[in-house]
C-alpha cells in the first residue's frame, strides 16, 4: 500500500464510511461528520459498501448490525481482513451483551446503541482517531 493511501495519513482528516440500511441514519450522519471535518461516504447496503471499501479502504467504518444480505458482523470481519488498521464502530438498535462481546472479539473499537446522541458518536470517532494517531506514532 502506498504511504499516502495509508489510513490515517499525516495531517489529513480520516475518511469515514457509514453503513446503515436505514436512509435516515446515513442522511443525518453524513452532514454531521462532514461538519466535524471528516471525509464521509455513506451506504445503505453492505455489498456496495464493501465494493467501495475494496476499491479504497477507509480509516473509520461505522456500521449497523442488522441488515439484509451481509450483516454488520460479517462486514466488520471483511473490513478487518482487508485493512486490519481500520477502526470500526458498531451502531445497533438490538444491543445485547453477546453481540457487543462478539463485535469486540472481532476487533470493533466501540459499540453504540441506537438511538444515540450525535455528540456521542462524534465523541467515539474522536477517541478512535486519537487512538489511531497514537498507534501511528508508535509504528
Amino acid at each position: 500500500m502506498l504511504d499516502n493511501e495509508r489510513p490515517g495519513g499525516e495531517g489529513k482528516k480520516p475518511r469515514i464510511l457509514v453503513l446503515d440500511d436505514e436512509p435516515i441514519v446515513v442522511k443525518r450522519l453524513k452532514p454531521a461528520f462532514e461538519k466535524a471535518g471528516y471525509e464521509t461516504e455513506t451506504f445503505t447496503d453492505s455489498a456496495s459498501a464493501l465494493a467501495r471499501f475494496t476499491q479504497r479502504p477507509f480509516d473509520i467504518v461505522i456500521t449497523d448490525l442488522k441488515m439484509e444480505g451481509m450483516d454488520g458482523m460479517a462486514f466488520l470481519e471483511k473490513v478487518k481482513e482487508l485493512s486490519p488498521d481500520t477502526g470500526c464502530v458498531i451502531i445497533t438498535g438490538f444491543a445485547t451483551l453477546d453481540t457487543a462481546k462478539e463485535s469486540f472479539h472481532k476487533g470493533a473499537f466501540d459499540f453504540v446503541a441506537k438511538p444515540f446522541k450525535l455528540a456521542d458518536i462524534l465523541d467515539v470517532t474522536k477517541r478512535l482517531e486519537e487512538k489511531m494517531a497514537g498507534r501511528h506514532e508508535e509504528a
Partner: peptide, 9 residues
C-alpha cells in the same frame, strides 16, 4: 434533533 434514531427504534 439531538438523537440519531431509526425506524426500527
Amino acid at each position: 434533533g439531538e438523537y440519531i434514531f431509526d425506524r426500527a427504534y
